[in-house]
């Protein structure tokens, strides 16, 4: 049923630290790998070795430049995947009931056997978290690695989403954001975690930790070097004066 649950017992989700992410895209690749080999239809590529390759990914890393008023610009790497919203618009628009949010843990999933591939859920998502697979013609999205996190065949340290397990910088955290005492909730509280596009009213579960303030010492530019020649002489000096007058 594509109505949303009144509330969910848990709110499993990710916390992404924009201060720590180094933009290596390892999470993108591990996500593609795990989700191609496991749950649901594989994430296909079209023309992968040709001139115009295109493919399905559930996680992508943007890079943004932020220019503060009076300080040097900052480069911020920005991983983006499904935010498993509390008020997920992608769920309610689904005409077939394929798109749903689980009452037990809040994960938003697609039942691929019921998906007609109309694409309306992707239209309704402001974050670009859903992509239609070019081969299977069904909607693909982050499952929060639902086939890892409860999987007792895996060693305990692997029972987290593939992107979290892979991140070499420790920029991705997984946990229950509905529990105020969980490690992820404490992290969000301490670092002032934010919602993306709060004005869209989606109430995302995933949070982003903004970059920490940079120490001003980094912004103190070195004194400019003294000019070696104060004023040009000879022909160059004459040319310089002439050109100034033109």
């Amino acid at each position: 049923m594509t109505t949303l649950p009144e509330s969910t017992d848990k709110k499993l989700g990710l916390v992404i630290d924009l201060d720590t992410c180094v933009g290596c895209h390892a999470c993108v690749i591990s996500c593609k790998g795990w989700n191609t080999e496991n749950y649901g239809a594989p994430l296909s590529d079209q023309d992968p070795y040709g001139a115009d390759p295109v493919g399905t990914f559930l996680n992508r890393v943007h890079s943004f430049e932020v220019q503060p008023e009076d300080k040097p610009a900052q480069l911020i790497h920005f991983p983006k995947s499904c935010l498993h919203c509390d008020d997920a618009p992608c769920v309610t628009v689904c005409p077939t009931g394929a798109s749903y949010k689980r009452a037990e843990d809040g994960i938003v999933l697609v039942n691929e056997d019921s998906c007609i591939g109309c694409g309306l859920c992707a239209w309704a998502c402001p974050y670009g978290a859903r992509e239609m697979d070019g081969e299977e013609k069904v909607m693909k999205k982050c499952t929060l690695c639902v086939d890892r996190i409860y999987n007792e065949n895996l060693p305990e340290e692997d029972r987290v989403p593939s992107c979290v397990r892979t991140c070499p910088a420790g920029a991705r955290h997984f946990g229950d954001l509905g529990d105020p005492n969980s490690a992820v909730s404490v992290l969000v509280e301490e670092r002032g975690g934010i919602d993306l596009m709060p004005e869209q009213g989606t109430k995302p579960v995933n949070k982003y930790l903004p970059p920490r303030l940079k120490d001003d010492i980094f912004y103190q530019a070195p004194e400019p070097l003294a000019p070696v020649v104060a004023e040009a002489k000879g022909f160059v000096g004459w040319l310089d004066k002439m050109l100034d007058k033109v």
Partner: peptide
């Protein structure tokens, strides 16, 4: 991006 409080954001 939620980065507007730092400065002007541009896709790099």
């Amino acid at each position: 991006t939620g980065l507007g409080s730092i400065g002007k954001v541009r896709s790099f």
